[in-house]
């Protein structure tokens, strides 16, 4: 013969909703409060997450404009120019017949590579990816070349204009687009 307490907790088939578990707590009231608690918890968590999403859209962005004047083409010597790397994250490269701008972001995992003059290559400090002066990858784990950005000669003052928001991707054949490079006479 079991004790009265044990019998009370055992679910009964006859009248589940009115069965008193202890001190006036019924099965139904337990479910009611549990539902209120879970709905409240979900609502509070949802509101918190929604409020967090607001942080993805800041009121002010302390970033330089993506389109900038990069000076007269004649100020660029043959090779890789690093003067805009710190501010706009681009290298401007001049070779024998053209100029182009490479966005300084490793296509492996997004670190900023370094230009190694002595070895004539870009080298990423994070996983050792290497690129030629053209931005084409040749060593390390990176799967594709670095991206180039829009570059053109301004019609009013002859300065270079670079826009880092417009990218030209090698695999899509975009490097031959007219705005992907500046033809040098």
């Amino acid at each position: 013969m079991s004790t009265p307490q044990k019998r009370a907790i055992r679910p009964s088939r006859e009248a589940p909703s009115t069965e008193v578990l202890e001190d006036g707590v019924t099965r139904r009231s337990t479910f009611k409060w549990m539902t209120i608690a879970w709905v409240g918890f979900a609502a509070a968590t949802g509101a918190g997450l929604t409020a967090s999403l607001r942080f993805l859209f800041p009121n002010v962005l302390f970033e330089p404009p993506t389109r900038f004047k990069a000076g007269d083409p004649s100020t660029y010597a043959f090779g890789v120019d690093e003067r805009w790397k710190a501010k706009y994250r681009v290298w401007i490269v001049r070779n024998s017949d053209s100029m182009y701008a490479i966005f300084a972001r490793c296509t492996h995992l997004g670190c900023t590579p370094n230009w190694l003059q002595a070895q004539n290559k870009f080298k990423c400090p994070c996983h050792g990816s290497g690129y030629y002066m053209s931005g084409v990858n040749f060593e390390g784990p990176t799967p594709r070349p670095m991206e180039r950005v829009e570059i053109e000669v301004s019609t009013d003052d002859g300065q270079l204009v670079v826009d880092t928001a417009v990218r030209y991707i090698y695999e899509r054949g975009q490097w031959s687009d007219p705005k992907a490079f500046v033809k040098m006479a």
Binding site: K85, K87, R89, A104, T112, N114, C124, P125, C126
Partner: peptide, 9 residues
């Protein structure tokens, strides 16, 4: 600073 990755990172 995104344009300055320490070497090695």
């Amino acid at each position: 600073n995104p344009t300055d990755s320490p070497n090695p990172s």
